[in-house]
Design a protein around this nucleic acid. Sequence first.
DNA 1: CGTTACCGGTTAAACGATTAATCACGGCAT
DNA 2: ATGCCGTGATTAATCGTTTAACCGGTAACG
Lengths: 358, 358
Amino acid sequence: MSRQKPKLARIADSLGVSTATVSNALSGKGRVSPELAERIRATAAELGYVPSVAGRALRTGRSGVLGLVLADISNPLFPKLAQAIENSAAKAGYGILIADSHGDVAAQTQAIERLIERGVDGMIVVPRRGTWVTGASCPVAVIDSPSTPGNTVAADHWSGGQGLGVHLVSLGHAHVLLLGNNQSSNVQNDRLGGVKAGLGSARVETVWIEKLESTAGQGCSLGLEEAVARGVTAIAAVSDLVALRALTELQRAGIAVPEDVSVTGFDDLIWSSVVTPGLTTMRMDVATIADIAIAAVLEAINQPKSAEPRRGDGETVTASQPKVPMELVLRQSTGPARTSASHKDNKTENLTAGELIQ
Amino acid sequence: MSRQKPKLARIADSLGVSTATVSNALSGKGRVSPELAERIRATAAELGYVPSVAGRALRTGRSGVLGLVLADISNPLFPKLAQAIENSAAKAGYGILIADSHGDVAAQTQAIERLIERGVDGMIVVPRRGTWVTGASCPVAVIDSPSTPGNTVAADHWSGGQGLGVHLVSLGHAHVLLLGNNQSSNVQNDRLGGVKAGLGSARVETVWIEKLESTAGQGCSLGLEEAVARGVTAIAAVSDLVALRALTELQRAGIAVPEDVSVTGFDDLIWSSVVTPGLTTMRMDVATIADIAIAAVLEAINQPKSAEPRRGDGETVTASQPKVPMELVLRQSTGPARTSASHKDNKTENLTAGELIQ
DNA sequence: CGTTACCGGTTAAACGATTAATCACGGCAT
DNA sequence: ATGCCGTGATTAATCGTTTAACCGGTAACG
């Protein structure tokens, strides 16, 4: 409880040395005798010295802050992601400034603009499908999907999907309905493509919800009851939100999950574990993804200016490990494929003997 | 695409004036002749001048950044809230630095500490139940519940609950089950208290999930089937997440919503509109809440230092309008109370005539 | 006519940290 | 004895903006 905020000068003349020496001692950069350095550190701690970010930023040109740009901050995956990123950044001594582009490109550009004006040293961008990152004047890491050009790091959505596919096959499912939202999303294509690959020779149908809703209206039925009647025994959704929609639509129609039909999702969102039945899903390792993204940006920031003539910042950085494996979370929404007889209303009784056995 | 980042000096001697004049012209503070001011603004815009936050921060002691502290960033309400706060802040020219205390008090204190070190001008805190804000050295706005001491602004949870209560009564419900998570949460108590008040003379039972789970185990059944058998015709959950859990548990048990039992939630979270049936819920006006919170903090920041001897910062600020009304969102999960006869498995047939009529 | 007030600016001093350049000085080789 | 070098510390410039103080000149005012 000394006077005021102690600055570098106070601790300096408290020891009778110059501010430069104090600065050097605390940052460990210049040449300071070990014992003096120790004394300086001690009194700094004692006085409760806290360096002024503003002063440092002004001199060094680094703010110690990274921007996090979310295409859609209301995406339910955002909490986990933001938490992970904030965590990784904090470990590296960086702060996270958030910016929301409400899913639209102009707003995203504006948001990036604001971040730049705020002097961020780098950015993490989670773009919306199609959206692209206009040249910012600082290193940018992009988290989208490995198949997106310019992507820095992301979950291995394709392999994750494949994992779900083989899981369903191992349960005997041979006729699966894939539920996607938007066909132009790289992530969604990767996920469903992976599922399809994992399913091997199983029969597959795909429904794109946005396309369906554009004709049948927002919040329309997904026609799952009819699909089940057609013989579908499993539904693989592109996200837990879609899976939840499917689950409730099925239950409302009196179709039992997983006895009549299995349901899988993606992301292990917060509700996946509390619904009945619990949702089998494919979780992404956000912590690792965040670590890699942050590391990549920081590396670019600390690059010795690249010695090039062009002020070649603004490039999207690359990471050593661009794809991070996903993890299968088994819950109760998946089970053995029903044989036709076990479907309570026997709409599927006219199957062949072979199909019955399978 | 001039040379480099234009600073004040460049535009100053580009016009043959002093930097002070430029500064005054751009900020509109000092005395500058209108036409010169206009010329200055013009060339500033032309050169693409962007003020250096670092320089300004160093000089003024203001960073132009607010901290947002979430008790639990993985709370599904967070996206909406963060979006609203970021929006309000951006409108006022402020940035939002996020900090996550993983629900635990020590981490929250640490997070606040980090924000202070980063030089935030103020903070918005959404505390977890019980958690309290240790004296930070800047204005703090708290968003929790009107009944929490020190609260700045929040949704009127009690009145919201009351609204749900009267809604249920108007549908003829006379026996309602209340679902809460944790009895020590102000918000949850307010919500359920309001519901109870709105229900008037109806019969009410309350289940606190965390207490139940502490004995029956994580993810246990909530005993809703039995409750319905006992004559419960409506379930009011303290949040949409709980409502979702209830909805799926009911559907899984073959109980139809809303024919057999109505379900209500709180918050209008993202999934409330996509599940079947859509969830009737009570939405909080996060945009208004964010606006008020930000305004309150900014007012405190721009206070003329209060002229007091003590450096009396660190106080939680107060707002002119501490409670913001909530809005009822009607969907399909609520309907007229069933008469006993309409419950498909007639477990309730041994009721009195009077109860049957009601 | 002397004093004051205003007007449209300029000067220069901060803000707090970093860092290149410099300096004092004892040891060492030439 | 002279020149050189390494060590440990200091000096002073610098980052870009804000703002209190100042200034010459003119108009208003008593």
